[in-house]
Amino acid sequence: MNQFQYTRPAETAVAVKSLAKEPNGYFLAGGTNLVDMMKMGLVVPDKLIDINRLPLKKIEKTATGMHIGALASNSEVAEHAYIKAQYPLLALAINAGASPQLRNMATVGGNLMQRTRCPYFFDTAMPCNKRTPGSGCGALEGINRMHALFGASDKCIAVNPSDMNVALAALDATIHVTGVKGPRAIKIGDFHRLPGDHPELDNTLQKGELITSVDLPTASSAYNKHVYYLKIRDRTSYAFALVSVAAALHIENNTITGARLAMGGVAHKPWRLSTAETFLKGKAVNEDNFKHAAQIAMQGAKAYEYNKFKLKLAPNAIVQSLKLATGLAS
């Protein structure tokens, strides 16, 4: 690992100013992604600003829902009694990702910033527009079985690797950030980007902005009874998703009165299935409706040479997650 400067501010304002002055500086939180990338030579910072001592760890109920400090660890969120009771989809998704040790280290803010696990991004001998803009995309014509079905471009077909982000998308989270120009709020759907012509940009954060919290609305806590996070991967545990589905339904008298659905492993951002949600609203709880919703969700999907299996796997996963969430399967 190359040498770098290291500071550990105690105040958020100091941390933000410190990064603003450093063109090649990075915030360091849990380090589970950044330190790995530094060892691989993907990121070579001149300066790390260790934000672990900033007062951004609180998890608390608020008048409008739930406030989760950006530095709360993934484990702390997944084990939080109120989150488990009112936002179980988030706890399930977090526990489906990484390992217990990594979840103890990794923070909520860091998980939002997690970079793709595309093997071409990690191999510095390979072209990758995300790592080295303009160098090309190795995955486009390469081994692309882990790659995107939705929203990709000819510059990048990588996917967002996070499970937590999929649940946050389904739960309508808001990301609070602060920077030298002051604080602002970003809806989860606007936080992560599609690759377009600039796959090097994963999200819409401005240079120097720091995530301070993730807030969940009270309305999303109504989706706490019929919930499932289905993750399909190459081994039973501790692997990135080929496809994952976050499903949460509100049901009255066997009728779906509201649906929250999002997929992971299929796009450059957590992929909210809005048209399928609209279709399900007012429909009866049965497999035919779930299949129809899955069909709607898959419209516009585009596969590459080695990920064609996902065109079958993804709709099947949607149906199965809805069946598991509603007790039609166990």
């Binding site: 550990r8 380090g31 589970t32 330190v35 790995d36 260790d50 990594l102 280290m105």
Partner: peptide, 10 residues
């Protein structure tokens, strides 16, 4: 924790 991914100073 995984001590390999934890910078000592943190």
């Amino acid at each position: 924790v995984n001590s390999c991914l934890s910078l000592a100073l943190t």
